[in-house]
Design a protein around this nucleic acid. Structure first.
Length: 215
DNA sequence: CCGATGATGCGCT
DNA sequence: GCGCATCATCGGG
């Protein structure tokens, strides 16, 4: 796929007015773009996790936690929230109204645009290129939090309204790397079933025929 | 191939 | 100093 010049992007209203879990599932198949200084990169979202704010023990805003690092989470729906984790960076899109600190972690994409540039940014072959939140940001060449607070509608990071693919089956399960009490039922990870870029997928679970898409 | 383990940089949530 | 919404490597099967 060639670079896209002026894509229609998802409006802020996409990221509020319904549960964050629903929005996370709805993001699967959407085209994520980044107009980086070196060129455009992007791909289809194949994995996303919902974080449900102050009542969610796995969320950065659990129990009202609010500091400099997670302040973007308290912004308007569709705001960029990038945070550092163990020397890597990860990208969330903020959901729900301001001061309702929910968000969705974009965990993996299937490369579609600028794959050569992504490979230079992150020289790992095969599905390792973008099959995790830190890997994805490396492939995009994002190594800081400079885009924090930007609305996706006005950022070099964009999620397209058009060009979307349709998952054949959306699979739901436990979030990755979240250690919380056993009482909390964690079922907030959404993936395109069988897509080989989904993180931690087992080889035999992959659908290399259609990559888990209908189209 | 798959699960376990240690390295890692950043912000103190 | 420590905790962490991770990653790459190692070794058993």
């Amino acid at each position: 796929m060639n670079p896209i010049e002026n894509p229609q992007v998802l409006p802020a209203s996409f990221f509020t007015g319904r549960p964050t879990t629903t929005i996370a599932a709805d993001l699967l198949g959407k085209l994520l773009l980044y107009n980086s200084p070196a060129g455009q990169v992007g791909g289809y979202i194949v994995e996303a996790e919902a974080y449900l704010g102050t009542l969610d023990p796995g969320a950065h805003a659990f129990a009202g936690r609010h500091g400099k690092a997670n302040d973007p989470l308290y912004g308007a729906p569709g705001t960029v929230y990038i945070y550092a984790i163990r020397g890597f960076y990860a990208f969330d899109v903020v959901t729900q109204a301001a001061d309702e600190p929910q968000g969705i972690l974009i965990r993996a994409i299937q490369p579609a645009i600028g794959e050569d540039l992504m490979l230079r940014n992150r020289p790992r072959g095969g599905f390792e290129l973008t099959s995790g939140p830190g890997k994805l940001m490396q492939a995009f060449g994002i190594h800081d939090t400079a885009m924090n607070y930007q609305p996706l509608t006005e950022s070099n990071l964009k999620i397209c309204r058009d060009f979307a693919k349709t998952p054949a089956t959306i699979q739901q399960g436990e979030r990755i790397g979240v250690r919380i009490g056993k009482d909390w039922q964690d079922n907030f990870r959404y993936v395109v079933k069988g897509n080989p870029y989904v993180s931690k997928i087992r080889k035999r679970e992959t659908d290399l025929e259609n990559d888990g898409w209908l189209n």
